[in-house]
Computed example of a mutant assay.
Amino acid sequence: MTTPADQPLTVLIAADTYPPHVNGAAQFGYRLAKGMTGRGHNVHVLACRADNGKAFSEFRSEATVHRLRSHGVFTHEYFRICFPWEIKKDISLLFDRIKPDVVHIQSHYMIGEHVLYEAVKRGIRVVATNHFMPENLNPFLPFPQWFKDIVGRISWKDMGKVMSQADVVTTPTPLAAKAMHQHAFLPKVLPLSNGIDASAYELQPGEVVERHAYPTVVFAGRLAEEKHVDVLIDAVAKTPAGLNIHLEIVGGGEVRAALETQVERLGLQNRVRFLGIASDEDLREAYIKADLFCMPGTAELQSLVTLEAMSASTPVLLADAMALPHLVRDGENGYLFRPNDSDDLAEKMTRIVRLPAAEHAAMGAASRRMVEPHSIEGTLQTFEDLYRGANYDDMVV
């Protein structure tokens, strides 16, 4: 069923992770809600509570956010889970109250799964977006690898079972779409970038941001095992001492203490700074002041932080893994390096730092040009078209 293009929609976004959680999927959910509200739609977000307690609703600038009862897990500092028997009634009552025109789930787990089932039962259009790979779970499963492999296969199967019931399935990159087709047996998956407002990270007319007095590498993201920030720290230690390369680490997470111990062991206390969870303004400034951005993670579906850094005209060094190769033209806007290889990373880091100023600026400009296809406005328009009934074959992205 299609709806007139000028008729506001009531949109229900089901997000298993949402701010104050800090990760790419949570940030996308927030930007999606904010963008759709800005387009005049009545937006509701269903997410778990960040603490213990009963379900409640709160009115926020980006949407009305409904928080479900949840429980912490011992393997993660903030991840929460919802038990089906505690949330199914609340989900049904929310549907009765807000009467959504369309539902947009952000994963096949917990909240997303049961919101989809409720929508299908009521004949409501469902768009499903996947931000997840089973490998993302590995650091939080205290089991041997053979058992994690079994969990991964079950997760793929469950993804196929749930998302096959949606009217449209999307994911941020062609590589992720291919993986979902191969492992979850989903016949049609639309690659659709999470989108970014690239202009938000540019220097504004008349704005001056003083660069560091020393070459600086920036990492931004959750400090988790699969991000391999330890490899980045080792690489900094292996660069020529005379270059005096510094590293700024933006973000928090479960491996921060281990990374701080590593920095002390390598004697890098004066060259590595942990900035913690930064505001949008501070993160933007970090990108602009950096000489290069590095993402050593090996389980990235798209990496919004890399797109943000590229928007600030920053060269990039990215692990040759998952979707990251799509964001690098080797030697043009940066380099790929062999995953978990600190020697290769150190060599390419040194190569970029030693570039003449004009060549370094050209590399940053190439990063900025490559971000253009990831416009947030284009992403929001495509999702709105899908909400209104457009089919896969109608999409040109």
Rank of each mutant, 00 (worst) to 15 (best):
219 F>G: 00
148 K>N: 09
355 L>E: 09
218 V>Q: 01
35 G>M: 02
22 V>K: 07
199 S>I: 06
238 K>R: 15
207 E>Y: 07
259 L>H: 04
274 F>C: 12
7 Q>A: 13
87 I>M: 10
180 M>L: 15
290 A>D: 05
195 G>M: 02
211 R>V: 15
39 R>K: 14
128 A>Y: 01
339 P>Y: 13
24 G>F: 02
132 F>L: 15
82 C>H: 00
351 R>E: 10
45 V>G: 01
302 Q>L: 11
358 A>V: 14
301 L>P: 03
379 T>W: 01
272 V>Y: 01
267 G>K: 09
52 N>E: 15
177 A>F: 06
215 P>D: 03
222 R>F: 03
64 T>V: 12
148 K>G: 04
27 Q>I: 11
358 A>M: 14
68 L>Q: 04
381 Q>N: 12
223 L>G: 02
21 H>Y: 10
71 H>L: 07
280 D>A: 14
329 R>H: 11
191 P>R: 02
17 T>H: 00
16 D>W: 00
315 P>V: 11
253 G>S: 06
135 E>D: 08
65 V>A: 12
243 L>H: 06
357 A>S: 14
99 K>M: 10
77 E>R: 14
124 I>C: 01
78 Y>V: 13
306 T>L: 05
280 D>P: 07
357 A>C: 07
96 D>G: 03
10 T>I: 11
304 L>W: 03
178 K>L: 08
54 K>V: 15
93 L>C: 13
118 E>N: 01
108 H>L: 05
144 P>C: 04
126 V>L: 02
18 Y>W: 05
205 P>K: 14
312 A>D: 04
145 Q>G: 06
37 T>V: 08
242 G>M: 10
302 Q>V: 14
36 M>A: 12
39 R>V: 08
348 K>E: 02
